[in-house]
Design a binder for these strands. Structure first.
Length: 831
RNA sequence: GGCUCGGUGGCGGAAUGGUAGACGCACAACACUUAAAAUGUUGCGUCCUCUGGACAUGAGGGUUCGAGUCCCUCCCGGGCCACCA
């Protein structure tokens, strides 16, 4: 059998170099898509070129989209399938700090490795439009977009908090803070205020929410976007501060009906009222003065805490009394005003009215400071609430609430809101969780923010003719407590030279999420030096038809990219509202132990080794066969061999089957049924079942050759090879050229440029179908029915009753009901 | 705690409310071989009184002629977010 051995090593290398020479699937001017073409823009999540190279997880998602792309092309669509690198970012910079090798160098090497590995996998990318975010030709336009935001007032400067390591004198990213301590030196991380740049994404909040109805995305993804935006409808209730003329505190609540149970008010430490007390803008009585020191200490302590600190303290409530009381005008009770860091300054009004009987956090706070607890909702029990498990946050009947008594919670809420608004004590409001986007990073390896400051320190945009505003190279990567760009002499000299003496550059760089918020736009006109992309190209190719992206950047990246799209639409560049019409997620490939692959666990599978041993085609098909694309699946080292055998068997079969003019009829039928199944499965990304169908076909093919000494005609064999081409591009190309076109043809035609075969509906239908016979819902037998007779109910039922295996179950029994689902099942229900 | 996805043989997984376990791996026996690998053939959910039958899709209820699939209650696991008033 050795002459039928498929030598994957030499064959894959051979076609790799042929395709490379042909620049197969690289877009060129002639190929540019015209309006009448049916375009398909396939987008794969922007990849960070990590130094460790491609891993098997990349292989899965890239292969899936590649199969889809190849299938679409064979079906006559103009496929746009670009590739690029999200190359700015922390890992390269951290490596530079350790090694001294500039990020530009390590990044280039990493990209070269990735490119080589991806090509080796036969991913049919359009390499003509390859982009990388660290290239000045790219970040010129990232900066240009920043300036458009700036012009419209959507890029602004404000105070922001950063994680700060007092020992290393450096800003830390959230992931560099471990248990509230610096990842490198273990020092307690503190919060520090810095003046930083923001994008006003909140200007688009409502549209970011409503736009989700237009797109075909997995439901959980939409849900998470909605949660992140966090729209809440509620009411702001304003309380008079007792003993003052005009002071008030306004609290946001979604549960105003519980207000008869309010026993205190809590302010965030950053609340304006707190600042006013400390700055003595408010006159204080003797008791209040006594509190002053404690308040000062508490606010200071809260400011020093990181978010992680607050988290790790869990549900233990801390706080301090202000000495002030607010009046609940509903029942004229006085509510003590407290300060606590469990209240977030950024949400609602930064002040909360405490209803300890019906909110767990309020309860914990009330318990900690011995504040009264008043029940206003009955859950069947009307008694005192003394333990956490008695706190009742659900619906029930109102009690102890005067005009609300007896009402259901929902009715009570409506009535209370109307009442508060009528009295002028409250106002309906909508509140969102979504904050503006802080884009400043005190980092080197990113696009410089194109802003310069005049000698008075006032910001000015970098002039467009000075873009790209180049990232300097004469910098010290070692952390000094300041943005690395501050160490660049060239950067400062350049600024003075272009803008005048005493002018200084902005030394922060942009969040890498900015780079990846518009890359799918640049792809369509990637070398354009005059615009970020030509308008006609943008509106012809976009929006993206299918976006395949891991579930890990479901929230931020998508939100930011949608925000950019809507802004550029409003600026007149784009004619669509949503960038990604259809989106799907790939699952994670886990290690053989069922755990996430990681170096430290030693469960990492290296794709290069698999390719060497079994070939790229085997690797591709194995990963597609593992299970549904969206599921997390463990790698099974033993199972790869099954795919290898599958390809070897096909190869041997095609070589050894007897040459015939006509295919064996039953086998031909199977071929068309398989074609139908594969044609339906690929667009649905159901690759695992498509491959199973191909395997069944091969099994039948082998049996047929063995029994009937006949196989498929050359024409039908060609259909099969085309069918397997998107899955195993090397393998299919080899067979196609060695058996059907020969190597001497003048113009090279790849099998991947041929047309997808069409199944014959007459051949996909069976002559006979099996109808299952049940008695009382249990399977007792089956009959074959000719396909053209399946709708003849009486005839089928009579045949079923005469079926030998059925007779004994129904003899002397009264059949009360006869169910017949045509072509499927019969059920005799006995009385 | 919130949202969300899932639980089917030894393993990965199939299954528009209609024969549960397709397809692949692993395993076992046999053939070929001096032997091994490779390849081929057969078997492979559990149990029983075994040419048949009973039980089986995390547990328990329900709807239905019929439930892995739909509904309710609960248990377990994964993911994301997390003191959001």
């Amino acid at each position: 059998m050795s002459h039928h051995f498929y030598d994957h090593q030499s064959i894959e290398e051979k076609w790799l170099s042929v395709w490379e020479k042909q620049k197969l699937f690289w877009s060129t001017e002639e190929q540019t898509i015209t309006a009448k073409d049916q375009k398909e823009y396939l987008l794969f999540a922007f990849a960070y070129p990590s130094g460790t190279g491609l891993h098997v997880g990349h292989v899965e998602s890239k292969t899936a989209l590649d199969i889809y792309a190849r299938f679409s092309r064979m079906n006559g669509k103009k496929v746009f399938f670009p590739v690029g690198w999200d190359a700015f970012g922390l890992p390269a910079e951290n490596f530079a700090i350790k090694s001294g090798i500039p990020p530009a160098v390590t990044t280039k090497n990493a990209i070269d490795t990735f490119r080589r590995q991806i090509k080796r996998l036969a991913i049919s990318y359009d390499w003509a439009n390859e982009i990388t975010t660290n290239h000045p030709g790219y970040y010129k336009w990232t900066q240009w977009i920043f300036l458009q935001f700036y012009k419209k007032g959507l890029a602004y400067r404000g105070i922001g908090m950063v994680n700060w390591c007092p020992n290393d004198q450096t800003v830390l990213a959230n992931e560099q803070v471990v248990d509230g301590k610096c990842e490198r030196c273990g020092t307690q991380v503190v919060q520090k205020e810095l003046e930083q740049w923001y994008f006003k994404i909140t200007a688009y909040t409502e549209e970011l929410l409503s736009g989700l109805h237009q797109v075909d995305w997995p439901k959980p993804t939409k849900q998470q976007q909605e949660n992140w935006i966090g729209k809440k409808e509620g009411i702001n209730i304003t309380y008079q501060v007792e003993g003052t003329q005009d002071l008030t505190v306004t609290c946001f609540t979604t549960r105003p009906e519980t207000n008869f149970g309010a026993t205190f008010i809590v302010l965030a430490p950053e609340h304006q009222f707190v600042k006013d007390i400390l700055n003595k803008k408010t006159s204080l009585n003797a008791d209040q003065k006594k509190q002053l020191k404690k308040i000062q200490a508490y606010v200071k302590q809260a400011a020093a805490k990181t978010e992680l600190d607050r988290l790790s303290e869990g549900k233990k409530k801390t706080g301090v009394f202000t000495g002030f009381y607010a009046k609940n005008q509903l029942n004229n009770t006085l509510l003590p005003i407290w300060i606590s860091d469990f209240v977030l300054a950024g949400f609602g009004t930064g002040a909360v009215v405490g209803v300890p009987a019906h909110d767990l956090r309020d309860f914990q706070f009330a318990k900690a400071f011995e504040i009264p607890i008043v029940r206003v909702i009955s859950d069947g029990e009307d008694g005192l609430i003394e333990r956490e498990d008695q706190v009742y946050e659900d619906h029930g009947k109102m009690i102890n609430s005067e005009f609300l008594n007896g009402l259901d919670v929902l009715d009570a809420t409506a009535k209370m809101i109307d009442h508060l608004e009528a009295k002028g004590w409250g106002k309906r409001v909508v509140s969102y969780k979504l904050r503006d986007w802080l884009i400043s990073r005190q980092r080197y390896w990113g696009a410089p923010i194109p802003i310069v400051y005049d000698p008075e320190g006032k910001p000015h945009p970098v002039k467009e003719e000075h873009l790209p505003w180049m990232l300097p190279t004469d910098v010290d990567f070692k952390p000094t407590g300041e943005s690395p760009l501050k160490s660049s002499k060239e950067f400062f000299e350049r600024t003075e030279q272009l803008y005048g003496k005493g002018w200084t550059p902005e030394c922060d760089t942009m969040d890498t999420f900015v780079d990846s918020s518009w890359y799918f736009l640049r792809y369509v006109d990637s070398r354009n030096p005059k615009e970020f992309a030509r308008k006609d190209q943008l509106n012809k190719l976009l929006p993206v038809d299918l976006y395949l992206i891991g579930p890990e950047h479901i929230v931020l990246h998508l939100l930011y990219a949608r925000f950019f799209t809507k802004f550029l639409r409003d600026e007149g560049y784009l004619k669509f509202d949503e960038p990604f019409m259809k989106m799907r997620h790939q699952g994670m490939i886990l290690g053989p132990d069922g755990k996430k692959m990681s170096k430290s666990k030693g469960n990492v599978i290296n794709p290069d080794e698999i390719i060497e041993k079994y070939g790229a085609d085997t690797l591709r098909i194995y990963e597609m066969f593992m299970g549904p694309l969206e599921a997390d699946k463990p790698w099974d080292p033993g199972s790869v061999i099954g795919i290898y055998r599958f390809l070897q068997r096909i190869y041997a079969l095609i070589q050894s089957q007897p040459a015939t003019q006509q295919s064996e009829p039953g086998l031909q039928k199977k071929l068309h049924q398989t074609l139908q199944k594969v044609t339906q499965d690929i667009p649905q990304l159901k690759f695992n079942t498509a491959i199973a169908a191909l395997m069944i076909m091969v099994n039948t093919w082998e049996e047929t050759v063995k029994k009937a000494k006949r196989g498929l005609s050359a024409e039908d064999t060609n259909i099969f090879v085309k069918m397997i081409a998107p899955f195993a591009p090397f393998f299919a190309e080899e067979i196609y050229h060695s058996m059907f076109v020969g190597d001497n043809s003048e113009h090279f035609t790849s099998i991947h440029q041929t047309e997808w075969p069409v199944f014959d509906p007459r051949l996909t239908q069976e002559d006979q179908v099996t109808v299952v016979i049940q008695v009382n819902g249990k399977v007792r037998g089956q009959i074959k029915v000719a396909s053209d007779q399946i709708s003849d109910r009486e005839r089928v039922l009579v045949a079923a009753k005469e079926e030998e295996s059925i007779i004994k179950w129904i003899t002397d029994q009264h059949i009360a009901k006869e169910i017949y689902v045509p072509g499927k099942v019969i059920n005799f229900v006995l009385a």
